[in-house]
Amino acid sequence: MNLSKQIDLTLLHATTTERDIINLAQEAIKYNFHSICVSSCYVPLAKQLITDSDIKISTVVGFPLGAATTSTKIFEAKEAIDYGADEISMVVNLGLLKSRNYVSILKDITDVKLAIGNIPLKVIIEISELNKNEIIKVCEICLDAKADYIETSTGFSKGGATLTAVKIIKKTVRDNISIKATGDIDDLETILKYLENGADRVGISTIIKPINNLRQLRNNKVYKQYLENSTLLEVEKVYQ
């Protein structure tokens, strides 16, 4: 297992410049991360920047409120795919969830999944706005809608991923949907904790801290499996 390939390097702030996206792509190539996750306006640029690597492009739709119409989410997803996006993260319609309009939420997710076919769909459920029962309910809807991933957070709400929420999600979906933990994750130990507790993918927005404590973690028995073949270690040798 290559730990680097379980990490999406993410930059979604409103003020993100072209230069920031260029730096992001360079970092991702350097550490051989799974993908760079960018806003839909930057998908064409991102695609150009990673042409000669196997780094994937992830983008977000209906982001970060989830309150765009379904047809807008579909349009944004399909256009991004046309320009080279390999994975789509959509935000669940939280207002409809709070209105207990579960049929409409199922349709929102199902319609996007049907429209994008084999492209992996991650559904961001924004756990900081949900109680335990709502997390379980939305996970069940994601199972019905055949989503590929459940993603914890946008990073733009009250809080990011929590271990408690990841455990609830894992217990609900077992191995039927993958889990991505995002938001407030900025060091390697936290990344490894999420992976140990059911997450398959982790979104980070900085690569500085994860690298800093790599050395102290590489001898830890539990984490060894993640670090053994990691590109992060190779980069570490080169850069230290």
Binding site: H13, Y42, F63, T69
Partner: peptide, 17 residues
């Protein structure tokens, strides 16, 4: 909304809708 970082044609599509 609120980031403004959606692609132009997606903004157009959302507006038409």
């Amino acid at each position: 909304f609120p980031l403004g970082a959606m692609s132009t044609v997606s903004k157009v599509s959302e507006t038409i809708d």
